[in-house]
Every structure is written in structure tokens, then in C-alpha cells.
Design a protein around this nucleic acid. Structure first.
Lengths: 259, 259
DNA sequence: CGGTTGATTGAGGCTGCTCAAAAGGTGTGG
DNA sequence: CCACACCTTTTGAGCAGCCTCAATCAACCG
């Protein structure tokens, strides 16, 4: 809890680095020096809460800023004119709205808060200046981009090859692992997941009606409980078997430190 | 053909940089100095041809090397034990088997030649040394990663929301644009695309039987011709309309130079 | 010529969609 | 406190997109 303030020059007593989701994330991807941690900390103090449903970044935006999610859940999604919506990715605390290096391009999708969310806007020139002085941060950000790419590929496989119940099972497995990585799981393994069935459908390429029926089947087989925005996976092993889920893609073996 | 052992002081007459697909690609993503171009050239002289179907990189591989595709087509794909296969991405000349920074992790999918392909293996430590001396190369590689991410997101939308005929139309549009970017289109806009209907199905999450029927419909409406491994889009505008295709995600506006 | 691979066609069936309506929950205003 | 609107979940009936299985045809190759 307390900052573990090992002074280099003298990293402030005010920097509870471990309480910041982005710093925690980057630290798990690549080692950060105390200087780098405090440089990050400087970027992140002007956060604010936004309500569920708020648009964090609009499609077409090229305002020269990126946003970091510090608490809550968000998603990337693309809307069609006829009402179809695809959720492309789910963002957890510590995720960024854009990848470094692509920040100058207009975004091709919306980023939206799925829950009340703690968000900080980071001006691009500001971030670049910090990176300039702290190459370790750049390395960590690029590693984050790599892991995100692996998740996108897993989603493609999920949408392309699996049937509805396998698809939902896989999504639940992924979310459970990422929740645990963010320390958002309760002791019994359950966690808050305030997604509607419509939103699950938008992530899975299914209608909310069908999600409902599939969910009932998973419930009936005592695999999961999902009520009141809380998901509890009762039999992870069987669920993993159904989904053919392998969590390797979510971690960063090989580079930096392992979780 | 000949390795062009150029001293980096004088940018040799032997370096037809524009004849190398990777150099051309990176150049289009970010400006490269002559020194950087020749440093890249050094990395790429030991290429070889591999036959169609050859595995370029195996799932689970962590050999400390990445592969660059210099000619031909390749794909990333994931296989299930029961025979299902999803093609996750199509690689064009100038694409890499892995993203820089993730090269030390074991790959989570196969990379396979779709046609006879010109491939060069690049040892990781070698690449890192070159990047160390030429930061412009690193920037270009990261931009390539960003663009690749945009393509993955477009595939997720395609698989999740579009019906078979829209899906196929979208894939054809994407391929046509990327072919043109690689100067692989003929004057009449047609190009070689030696994919089987089974492979198209594996990319689109459809069976080859259904791909066949959808293809017939597109043909019947005079939208495309697809015979003998050659695709010709006869009415790009209408095809784009069906697919709801917007090519913006394939380019790199904002950073470096525009195509 | 037989063997193999890919394209094509047909019949039938299942998964997941559409349309519709009812039930449960929540917040708002009278 | 109730009435009302609104959203989400749930359920049902019918349909359609896509799959499965199977067979035929065409091209290529040793």
C-alpha cells in the first residue's frame, strides 16, 4: 500500500505507484525504474470519473491525445449505420485507448465506458516527452501493444470458428483471467461484470436473445452464475475445455518479467 | 541477387532498395535514411524461396528469429485438433512473421506460405543490433504493427457482424487494396490470388461449400471474376457498397508520409 | 489410366436470427 | 406511494443462413 519509496533522487512520498493501474500494468510487462514510475505518475494525476456509457474517444478523432483507463471497464466498438454494433475489444484498468505510434491517426472506432470509469487524458506531446527521457516506458508500451494484438487474434479465432456456447465460454475465460491480472477477482473467484446480454452479443457476434439462451444452458450445467452484474465461474476446468481456452496469449512470457 | 556489401558511407549502386518489398513497405510507413535502407538491405540478403504450403513459422516456436516475406503470399492461422482452421491474417510482401518486441515470446499460431514465397530469416540479435544503430527502422516497424492491428480489428468486425456475401466482398476489397499497395495489380485492376475456396472459407469463418455459392452470386451480379487463381473486381464501387468497405484503416495517415 | 485435389451441385437439417410479447427492475414525477 | 416510462431479461414461434453429407465433374499429375 505505501509507496515503497526507495529514493533515487527522491521519488515522492506521494506516489503510491502500486495503486495506479497503468503503472502496475506496465510494470508487469517490463521492468520500470523508480524514475520511470514517477514520470508516469506525473502524467496521470488529472484523471476524472466518467459515467457508464460515456464515449471516451470518438471514431475519427485525431485530437493528439490518448486516454488511459485507470478503473472500470471500457470497450472499443464499431457501429454500422443500420444499427449493427461490434465490440472489438474490452479494456481493463491499465489499458490505453490507442497504441503508441498510432496516436496521430484518426481512430477507426469508438472507445466507450462500459461502467463508471476512471480515465485520464494524456496529451501526445507530453507523453512523447516523457518517453524520450524514459525509454523503459516506451518498451513497456510496445509490449502492451503486442499483447493486445494477441488478444485480437484470439477474438478472430473465436468469432470465426466457435459456436455460440464455445464463444461465450471463451470470452468468459478470457475476462476471468484478465480480471485476475488486474486484481479484480474476489476470493471466491467471482467478479463484477456489469455487461448486458446485448453487450455480450455485440462482442460475440450474436443477438442478445441467443446470448440469453446460451447463458441459460451454461447456467443449467452449473458452469457459471451470472446475475446482477456478477460473474462466477463455478467450474473453470470444464469451461476451459468447452472453450478450448489457453491463457498463454494473455501473458508476456519471454520478455521482461513473468507475472 | 548479389548481397551488395556496401560500406555505409556510400550508398551503393548495388542496392536496389526499391526492389525489396520490406524496404519499400517501411519506407512508405516512415521515412528512412539511405543509411537505414542499406542497413536493412544487409539483413535481407539471405532469402530463399519456399513452396506453397510450407510452414514458415510453427506455433510454439521461440527460436529467436523472425521472418520477412519478400514475395508471394502467406497467412497466419490457428488449427484446432478437430480440424477446424481459422486464417487470422494474410501476409503480403513486406510483412513480418512477428511484431518486433514480441519476438521472444512463443508464437501462438502458424505462419504458412499460401503461394511460393520468398522469405528471409532474420536473427533477433542481428535485427536488434541494426535497430540500435538506426532508430528510424524501429519507428517504421512499430508503425507496421499499428497498421496490422487496424487490420485485425477490421477482421473482427467482418466476422462478427457481416453476412457471408458482405464478408467475402469485404475481404476482396481489402486484398485488392493491399495488392495495389504492393504494386501487384495489373493494369486492368486484376491480380493473382491463388487461394482455394477452402482457404477463403478458413479466413471468413465459412465452409468452402458456402463460399462457393456466395462466389457464384457475386459472379452472377457481375461484381467479380475469380478463375484460375486470378481475381478481377469488375465493379469496385458496388462491391465496396455491399461490404461497407472503407480503406482508411489500411493506410498510415498522420505519421510519416502518406502513400 | 488411376489418384488426388478443388469446384460445383443437391438435399436436408441445425444453429442462430427475427419478430413479438410478457415479466422483472429501476428511476422519475405526480 | 403509485403510475409511468424505460431497459433488460426471458420465452415462444417461425424462418433463414449456413452447415453437413454426399455425389459429380474438371483439372492436373505421376
Amino acid at each position: 500500500m505505501s509507496p515503497a519509496g526507495a529514493p533515487l533522487t527522491h521519488p515522492t512520498r506521494e506516489m503510491p505507484a502500486n495503486s495506479n493501474a497503468l503503472i502496475r500494468r506496465l510494470q508487469s510487462l517490463s521492468r520500470l525504474t523508480p524514475t520511470e514510475r514517477s514520470a508516469l505518475w506525473e502524467l496521470l494525476h488529472a484523471w476524472e470519473w466518467v459515467p457508464a456509457g460515456a464515449v471516451i474517444e470518438r471514431e475519427g478523432d485525431c485530437s493528439g491525445a490518448i486516454h488511459a483507463l485507470l478503473a472500470g471497464l471500457a470497450c472499443r466498438h464499431k457501429d454500422f449505420r443500420d444499427g449493427r454494433r461490434q465490440i472489438i475489444a474490452i479494456l481493463f484498468p491499465g489499458d490505453l485507448s490507442r497504441n503508441l505510434g498510432g496516436a496521430a491517426r484518426p481512430t477507426d472506432h469508438h472507445v466507450r465506458a462500459l461502467t463508471r470509469a476512471k480515465v485520464v487524458r494524456i496529451a501526445l506531446h507530453h507523453l512523447e516527452a516523457v518517453i524520450e527521457a524514459n525509454p523503459g516506458i516506451e518498451r513497456a508500451l510496445h509490449t502492451a501493444t503486442i499483447v493486445e494484438g494477441a488478444v485480437l487474434r484470439a477474438w478472430i479465432v473465436n468469432l470465426g470458428q466457435r459456436q455460440a456456447h464455445e464463444r461465450l465460454a471463451h470470452l468468459f475465460c478470457e475476462i476471468a483471467h484478465r480480471m485476475a491480472n488486474c486484481d479484480l477477482s474476489r476470493p471466491d473467484g467471482s467478479f463484477e461484470l456489469p455487461l448486458t446480454q446485448k453487450e455480450l452479443g455485440a462482442a460475440l457476434g450474436l443477438t442478445s436473445v441467443h446470448v440469453n439462451r446460451v447463458l441459460q444452458k451454461l447456467r443449467a450445467e452449473a458452469l457459471v452464475e451470472f446475475d446482477n452484474g456478477v460473474l462466477r465461474i463455478r467450474e473453470m476446468e470444464r469451461l476451459r475445455g468447452i472453450a478450448n481456452f489457453d491463457p498463454a496469449y494473455l501473458s508476456n512470457w519471454g520478455h521482461g518479467q513473468a507475472p
